[in-house]
Simulated assay, not measured.
Amino acid sequence: MNSDTPVADQTDHPGEPIAVVAAGAIPWRIVNGHLEVLLIHRPRYDDFSWPKGKLDAGETVPECAVREVREEIGLQAGLGIPLPPIHYHVNAGLKVVHYWAVKVNGAPLRPDGKEVDSVMWCTPDRAAKYLSNPSDIEPLEYLEKAYVRGELDTWPLVLIRHAKAKPRSSWTKAEGDRPLAATGQRQAAAVRRLLEAWWPQRVVTSPWLRCVATIAPYAKASGAKVKLSEALTEHHHQRSPKKTAAAVEALFDKQVPIAVCTHRPALPTALKQLGRHMLPELRALLPTSDPFLSPGEVIVCQVARGAERKIVSVEQIRPFDD
């Protein structure tokens, strides 16, 4: 997935252009050992659905999902596992809505009153009966199956390739001091906005300037704890890929939302290490050819909570490119 508007849907409506792109989430919680999901009621349509809305100019699909959840029900929460998108026709043409699961940890919900006048927690079975759009049942069923498998309660691990740096050919000083280009500085601002969809509490980065400058806007805005790791630099990776792999493996230790920023030459090692924690069908989604990720692009892995260090979803997302 990236920030570009999809050109056509190749699933239920093969070849038909997508006219409207929207995003949202299914909020969920566990009460007395039972799964509950949150339905919203929209007075304008007198219907029950999930929090969602159309993309604003200059934002990615994940950013849209987080914003819509915040605006419609007053919940500021990071995205969990991606859910199947739905497709249906509106006056403008074919509409696609991308969904994520969002865990609600007792935070108060404040419906905005205009778009949403009430909310209702209920079991998935009851929610399916209330939903006004039958298409909304598919992501609900996926969420419930993930819960049964123990793959709904997750934390995000985000792999970032640093933003575009000044060319090596025009830089005569130490390689670790090579800064971001002007384009890279704009990408770093876009990375900040994108990372706010998952709110990693910790950031581990190569200490080289172009990596630090890539995550600096997010770290400053979020207050995330930043750790510098020499094992993530190009030079250390060239000398000892095993230490780079060990640094990636250590990201699993605390089981908290975390982001890691490194260089293109280190990406194959990082991706291979992450792949060790995935089933083959997920591993097949990882990029396999150089350059693996574009400058500023991210891989988002959702890791199931528990001792197994099991990655249960993979997304590849490019920040909005102006």
Rank of each mutant, 00 (worst) to 15 (best):
D112N: 14
P179Y: 08
A224L: 10
E230F: 09
P319Y: 08
A92Q: 10
P62M: 13
L267G: 02
G306Q: 12
I311Q: 03
S222I: 14
Q238P: 03
K220A: 15
R264H: 06
D253V: 08
Q76G: 07
A190G: 11
D56T: 15
L38Q: 04
D125S: 07
L279Y: 13
A270K: 06
R192P: 03
T60Q: 10
L251Y: 04
R29L: 04
L75S: 10
L140H: 09
P319V: 07
P156N: 11
W155M: 04
G223R: 10
A246T: 06
K254Y: 06
V256C: 04
Y45R: 10
A250L: 01
P265H: 12
R264E: 11
V96Q: 08
W198K: 12
V102I: 15
G106I: 06
V20S: 01
K272S: 11
L35Y: 00
L279K: 13
H263G: 05
P257R: 11
D46Q: 09
P291D: 05
I81K: 02
H98D: 04
E249D: 07
K145M: 12
T233P: 06
A284Q: 13
S313Q: 12
R305C: 12
G78I: 09
P291Q: 05
P27S: 01
A284C: 06
G78W: 08
P167Q: 04
A219H: 12
I160V: 15
H277A: 12
V212G: 02
N32S: 05
I311H: 06
E63A: 09
P265A: 14
